[in-house]
Design a protein around this nucleic acid. Structure first.
Length: 968
RNA sequence: GGGCUUGUAGCUCAGCUGGUUAGAGCGCGCGCUUGAUAAGCGUGAGGUCGUAAGUUCAAAUCUUACCAGGCCCA
């Protein structure tokens, strides 16, 4: 027989067949799958399926509805979706109701900006119209974001999301606020804020622009009137300030933790204001610069003091006893330690006006310093500032007023001024009017942290700290972070002087200032909110709410709105509490099983929800809290538009597919900051390809799989039983990983399974059986049965992550419904077989020596394909005994293989980590079977099929006779 | 500046309470295969474990400082 005219047996080989393409084409395919889910109403089916199951309630932290989603939103929502889908498949009822934060400043700005573009002023627009436009704006972006989130594959109740601006929500937020009236924690206090005298309004941090501004700076001496340190007797403390107009409001002086020098002035230069003989105190490090600044030419250091020596010292206000002051400045000015004092500039002493600075206010609070308001909302001194009343800090058009000049003249008159200069520095200005701002105390509403809750013997802080301890934090370190914050946080300021929000709908008695705590009135207000939303507060006359018992003239109505953090902190009340949400989401329940947000929410939503829950329910609204980090660029740098290193989720799902983005989320360690960029996404695609091809191979191998082929597991070869054992192992890992949200480990387990167990080992070994064995052979039936099982498990394991691809595979397999309606299949414990696993570890070790030896032979051009080889494997009798029943030739994919118990030849190939095994490679003897490509001695001995081995000849012959059938 | 936190191969990640030559996958190089083929298999080269001190018989693992990031504050 010549080799010229060999029969082509390709058509007799059972090659894999599938419509599941190698390349996903996800950007086109995913929208089709989304449409299919809509068609079969997957969400409703999920809910119906889970009725009565144990609940797993992930409560959505509401994103802010003012723009398209960015990568951080995508990460957050994908994580939620993977966990929700995963738990549903593990047998929970895991509903997901998305939510939106709709009120607040950023939306107000946008609307205001639109007004300004039209040359309109916000203040000229009726408040209800303004609110309506804010509402429309939020509704628009809610819709945009909803579409983007759904495109990511996130499944949930998108037709019925919660929103903080619905009537029901606004009414419930108000009721939550009223609970803090009831429990006595809500109080009115003051707080320094950035104030614009031009707009007569407080400004939020984001409305402030820092611009260069020239300020008059003063060096001012405060005479010491009481001290326990001898060196300070008759001395004066020197402060430095850039805001002369705050001097009348001075109440204290702060010093830092460094050395101070007491000096005597011995000589002064021209125009100096200091006097010879003055004894002054400044920080030792700033001694030289001070002399320079104040034109003191000669001085003597009298003493150097430690910070502790300043403790208990009391100075007098420079205006003490000033004519016309009526004793208004005769109070003591104590010295206190302040951590914020630095040596960057000045004298090491900071003058403290508690009404006009954040540090000042906090220090004042710490030491209980009493102070009056000194500057009115128009920037003028109030009448109580004797000798300065009516003078102006900044004028109505934003220019410097006459207050500074008057203060300077008075300081000179009292011989307290040591020096005066101008400096140019960054100073806060209004984003709107561009006018400079001042710090000014304003009345605000607070929730007390350290007051006993009425009816309880505990403070809100204590209840909150208890609740933190009872909560499970993922990662555990999150607990420290929030505990530290709650331990040290000040009272919660919940008021904002804004229009787009839920008003703090209270009536205050005009004379006493007391809150009207009348249940009937509050119920009427809340009922009005139920009907008309918070607009009711603006639209209806006060008397409507007050009823017959009170006169509107006796009360002022509060029009501050509540901080949006209070609103989002209340979402559990109107969303999770089925009694309060009107049964709108009957499958939700309180407390939620899980809150899942970025780590910044330790200060934000986690904390506001915690405080709100603790104040109104006595416990946290969550049982577990999972946090993720932030998304950085490929170099680990923060993303920013100016750096041009942002990755838009829309680009990823439009160009690569949402499954790639989902895979990226799961493959990164999301508990810490994670990186994304072109290279990382490329790598994610490679990762995706492995999963896709594994599914594809299974689908191809299972083409036309008939139930009649299914083989009882007991009848299967060891290799199949080992795969079943692996399924058992992976299954238990999937379950524990999902339960502890360790998605990274879960993914790696699945990847290794696909890679090492399936692709490199099982699929490779079983190709021969799959392609060439007769359809009714036990081996092939076992293979197909196990591959069917692998598919069933793998597709469900992957479904929460690759939600689109898993569904595509599911449908391609010809299954009904949706993969997402499956539970993770249970694995019979009989599949677990540790002894077999151990045996296969050994087999794989021996296999590695064989493949290693073949690789060497290939390098030496001795062989090409493994089927050309006949390895001689040397090992001990015990080794071969322990591998009883294993066909190593099949496992190493060789045409033949011999085992030897003899001494390992010196030239045999060995591996360091596989002791006692050596391999020599010979060429397999015989001819190549043209069907299965094995090289076997019997090829050529069959007259009818001279190019086939015995096995292939039988298969081909039976096919020709039409006698093969899977059921036979 | 403060609180919390991160820094292991080009990339994504493992390395438990300190203990033999620091692991995996991807990517890359090389080879095989051409019946998973814009795929599959095998194999190889890549790491002073951010830097520097210290504790210890022994440190990627503990301590301190520094450098470079991140979140939240100031």
């Amino acid at each position: 027989m010549t080799t010229d005219h060999k029969t082509d047996y390709r058509s007799t080989v059972f090659l894999p067949q599938t419509d599941f393409p190698m390349r996903g084409g996800l950007p086109e395919k995913e929208p089709e799958i989304l449409a299919r889910w809509k068609e079969i109403d997957l969400h409703a089916a999920l809910r119906a399926q889970a009725e009565g199951r144990e609940r797993f309630v992930l409560h959505d932290g509401p994103p802010y509805a003012n723009g398209s989603i960015h990568i951080g939103h995508a990460l957050n929502k994908i994580l939620k979706d993977v966990i929700v889908r995963g738990h549903q498949m593990l047998g929970f009822d895991a509903p997901y109701v998305p939510g939106w934060d709709c009120h607040g400043l950023p939306i107000e700005w946008k609307i205001e900006e639109q007004y300004r573009a039209k040359g309109l002023d916000k203040d000229d627009v009726p408040v209800l119209q303004f609110r309506a436009e804010c509402r429309a704006f939020a509704a628009h972006w809610k819709d945009v974001q909803s579409g983007e989130f759904q495109r990511l594959g996130v499944i949930g109740d998108w037709d019925h999301p919660y929103m903080t601006m619905t009537k029901k929500a606004e009414a419930q937020i108000l009721r939550e606020l009223y609970k803090f009236v009831d429990n006595g924690l809500l109080y009115k206090g003051v707080k320094p804020v950035m104030w614009s005298v031009v707009e007569k309004t407080a400004l939020a941090e984001a409305e402030i622009e820092y611009q260069d501004h020239t300020s008059t700076t003063l060096w001012i001496a405060f005479p010491i009137i009481k001290t326990e340190t001898a060196a300070l007797k008759d001395a004066k403390v020197v402060i430095w300030t850039t805001t002369p107009w705050t001097i009348p409001a001075n109440r204290a002086i702060a010093y830092g933790d460094f050395d101070y020098t007491v000096l005597r002035v011995d000589g002064v230069g021209e125009n100096a204001l200091a006097h010879i003989g003055d004894i002054l105190v400044v920080a030792d490090n700033l001694y030289e610069t001070f002399l320079d600044d104040s034109k003191i030419t000669e001085a003597t250091k009298l003493a150097t003091l430690k910070a502790d020596n300043l403790k208990g010292t009391i100075a007098a206000h420079p205006f003490r006893g000033r004519d016309g002051s009526e004793g208004a400045f005769d109070y003591d000015v104590p010295l206190y330690r302040g951590a914020f004092v630095t040596l960057d500039a000045g004298t090491g002493f900071v003058h403290i006006a508690p009404g006009h600075g954040e540090d000042d206010f906090n220090l004042g609070k710490e030491y209980g310093i009493a102070f009056d308001e000194t500057v009115g909302d128009d920037g003028r001194y109030l009448p109580n500032v004797k000798g300065f009343a009516g003078l102006c800090v900044y004028t109505a058009d934003g220019k410097t007023g006459d207050a500074n000049g008057a203060v300077i003249r008075a300081l000179i008159e009292k011989e307290a001024l040591l020096a005066k200069r101008n400096i140019k520095h960054a100073y806060p200005h209004s984003w709107r009017s561009k006018a400079p701002l001042i710090f000014r105390t304003t009345p605000q509403w607070f929730i007390a942290m350290d007051k006993k809750i009425e009816g309880q013997n505990k403070t809100l802080r204590e209840v909150a700290l208890d609740a933190i301890a009872k909560t499970e934090w993922f990662p555990a370190i999150g607990e420290n972070r929030i505990r530290g914050m709650v331990e040290s946080r000040p009272d919660w300021c919940i008021s904002r002087q804004r229009a787009w929000g839920v008003p703090i709908a209270l009536f205050l008695h005009k004379e006493t200032g007391a809150i009207l705590r009348d249940k009937e009135v509050m119920n009427r207000v809340a009922a009005a909110f139920d009907e008309d939303g918070a607009d009711a507060w603006y639209a209806r006359p006060a008397q409507d709410f007050l009823g017959n018992s009170y006169r509107a003239d006796d009360y002022t109505q509060v029009f501050d709105v509540v901080d949006v953090w209070f609103e989002s902190g209340s979402t559990h009340a109107f969303c999770l509490n089925t009694a309060l949400n009107g049964n709108e989401w009957p499958t939700l329940s309180l407390p939620a099983t899980l809150y899942l947000e970025g780590s910044d929410q330790h200060r934000g939503w986690f904390q506001s929800s915690l405080l709100e829950g603790c104040g109104t329910l006595g416990h946290a609204p969550f049982e577990k809290v999972l946090t993720h980090g932030f998304t950085l660029d490929e170099q680990g740098r923060k993303m920013s538009k100016s750096l041009g290193n942002t990755v838009a989720p829309q680009d990823v799902y439009n160009k690569m597919g949402a499954d790639i983005l989902r895979l990226w989320v799961v493959s990164s360690d999301f508990t810490e900051d994670q990186r994304i960029g072109p290279d990382i996404l490329k790598q994610t695609s490679d990762l995706y390809r492995r999963f896709r091809n594994t599914l594809r191979y299974l689908l191809g191998a299972l083409s036309e799989f008939d139930e009649a082929e299914r083989l009882d597991t007991k009848a299967m070869p060891e290799l199949e039983r080992w795969i079943l054992h692996r399924l058992h192992t992976v299954d238990s890992i999937v379950r524990t990983d999902m339960a502890r949200f360790d998605l990274g480990h879960l993914l790696m387990t699945l990847h290794n399974f696909c890679n090492a167990d399936l692709s490199a080992l099982y699929f490779d070994i079983r190709k021969d059986s799959l392609y060439c064995d007769d359809k009714d052979s036990i081996r092939r039936r076992a293979t197909r049965t196990v591959m069917d099982l692998i598919f069933n498990h793998l597709v469900v394991w992957l479904a929460p992550i690759l939600c689109f691809t898993a569904e595509e595979a599911w449908v391609t397999r010809g299954r009904q419904g949706s993969v997402h309606l499956q539970n993770v299949p249970t694995v019979p414990d009989s599949w677990k077989n540790d002894a077999l696993a151990k045996k296969w570890e050994l087999i794989r070790a021996v296999r590695r020596v064989v493949t290693g030896a073949m690789e060497l032979a290939r390098k030496e051009k001795k062989i090409g394909a493994p089927l050309q080889a006949h390895p001689h494997v040397y090992g001990s009798k015990e080794l071969w005994a322990s591998l009883e029943g294993v066909d190593l030739a099949e496992i190493a994919i060789c045409s033949a293989l011999s085992l030897h118990e003899d001494q390992i030849p010196d030239q045999a190939f060995r591996l360091d980590d596989v002791a006692g095994v050596g391999v020599m490679i010979d060429l397999a003897e015989g001819k190549k079977c043209e069907r299965c490509w094995q090289i076997l001695p019997e090829v050529g001995s069959h007259a009818d099929h001279p190019d086939l081995c015995t096995r292939c000849r039988r298969v081909v012959t039976r096919r020709q006779e039409g006698g093969t059938s899977a059921s036979s």
